[in-house]
Simulated assay, not measured.
Amino acid sequence: MMKTIQHYLIFCFLPTLFTACGVGDNLAMLPETDESGKLTVSFDLNGAGIRMDDATDTRANANVPLENLADGTLFSIRAYKKTYNDKGELTATIFADAGVYKVESGGKTANAYTSVTDAVLQLTRGIYDLYFLSYNSSTVYPGVTGDTETITGSTLADVTSKDVIATSMKDVQIQSDQDGQVTLTIPMDGAVFSHLCSRVKARLDIPRNQPVIVLGVSALKITMKPLYGTAGYNWQKGTLSTTGERNNSVDLIASGALSGIDSSTGAATLSSSDVYLFPLNDDVPLEFDVTMTIAYKTSSSGSQLSGDFKLSSPVALDKALLAAKSYCFVFTLTYYGELVPSDLTLDVTSYSPVNLPSDDVGADD
């Protein structure tokens, strides 16, 4: 009697921090003179940047460097001027100007992005709060026309291309230090950009030494839903809030393939690229649709066969996606015998991606 093949897919969920850095106040004190003319601003980025994978574990923090913004990265700025009464009490914070800047010199400086009209930030003498927003991209940048920036796209794929990062500098004193001065470089030491979205990827694992030898995978598609497609960023509050209906989806892997798998073990791994998603709470379960075509052979057949795997219904997971964290959704294709595909088993495992020896991961302090 001919035996049929059963494919099992074990789904592992692997969350981890990719930043936990706060955006603190930073004071750029410049020498005071009587000059009150308008100054064209540039930025010194030494001591600024993005802190990736900042975990709560003390051992992890010791291995987390501050990364420079890459050359060509564009960021937008809105400046708000503070006014005070005769008693030195704050009376108002008023929008003053905005600009778009480009990172240069190996991540050490930022100057006005000349490809954009009115990109130059120009400020008169006074004390300002400066707010910075970026998609961590060299091709797209946030608008600066209002106190709230809407971040959206015609499809979710447009949104997921945006790694939204932000920082701020409070009580920055703008003052020229010589007569006739028209430019001013503001140091940003200590201004660390925070990630406002969740970083997500998917992975298919095929373990070794199973009853069925997997020779290849094609037409792999892993779809995640339901997701938000629009959010609003409040410049002065530094908050990102989702808007609209949570009815979008994204293909974490749209058409994946694995070939040339070692036939002696059948072991292989296929990973997606990172995508960036707006944060979600867990009031609505995440769902995953998985389909693929599998080439395999069995000990009884000895020759290559092929079969389609498709979940009969989406796998659901009650899990929030938090800002500034990474999530890897791992699907493990497992065989428990030579049977037709029929089941999906879900497992959840956490990890922290830090430079620790493999036998130390998860160990107690």
Rank of each mutant, 00 (worst) to 15 (best):
Y228Q: 04
T152E: 15
V200P: 02
D163R: 09
T160G: 02
G190F: 03
T185L: 04
D205H: 11
K170S: 09
S218I: 05
Y135P: 02
D171V: 09
Q181V: 04
S161C: 08
P207D: 05
P226Y: 12
K221F: 06
P226F: 10
N209M: 11
P226L: 10
N136K: 11
I151L: 08
D205G: 13
R208I: 10
I165H: 01
T148W: 03
I186R: 00
C197K: 09
T223V: 08
T150S: 11
L133N: 02
K237W: 10
T155L: 08
Y228A: 01
M224C: 12
K201R: 14
L133S: 00
V164T: 07
G229I: 08
S168T: 13
S176G: 15
Q181E: 14
I206D: 09
P207H: 05
T167Y: 02
N209D: 15
Y135H: 05
N247K: 14
L204Y: 02
T243R: 11
D189H: 09
Q210H: 11
W235P: 01
V164L: 02
Y233I: 04
V192S: 05
V182Y: 11
V164N: 03
T242S: 13
S138W: 00
R208D: 15
D179V: 14
T148N: 11
V172W: 00
V212I: 15
K221Y: 08
I174Q: 00
L133W: 07
K237E: 15
S241R: 06
F193H: 03
T239C: 07
T167H: 03
G229P: 10
S198F: 05
V172P: 06
P211I: 12
G180S: 07
G238H: 02
K237A: 13
L227I: 06
H195Y: 12
E245T: 12
D158Y: 07
V192K: 02
N136F: 13
V214D: 04
Q236A: 13
T242G: 03
D251N: 15
R208N: 14
V172C: 05
F132M: 06
D205P: 07
A231Q: 05
V164H: 01
K237S: 14
T145M: 11
G143E: 14
K170M: 12
M188A: 08
T230H: 07
V144N: 00
T148G: 01
D177R: 00
S168D: 08
I165S: 00
E149I: 07
V159P: 03
T150C: 07
S198E: 10
L240A: 07
T148I: 15
L227V: 01
P207Q: 03
T139I: 12
S176M: 14
N209H: 13
R208S: 15
V144E: 05
T139V: 12
L133A: 01
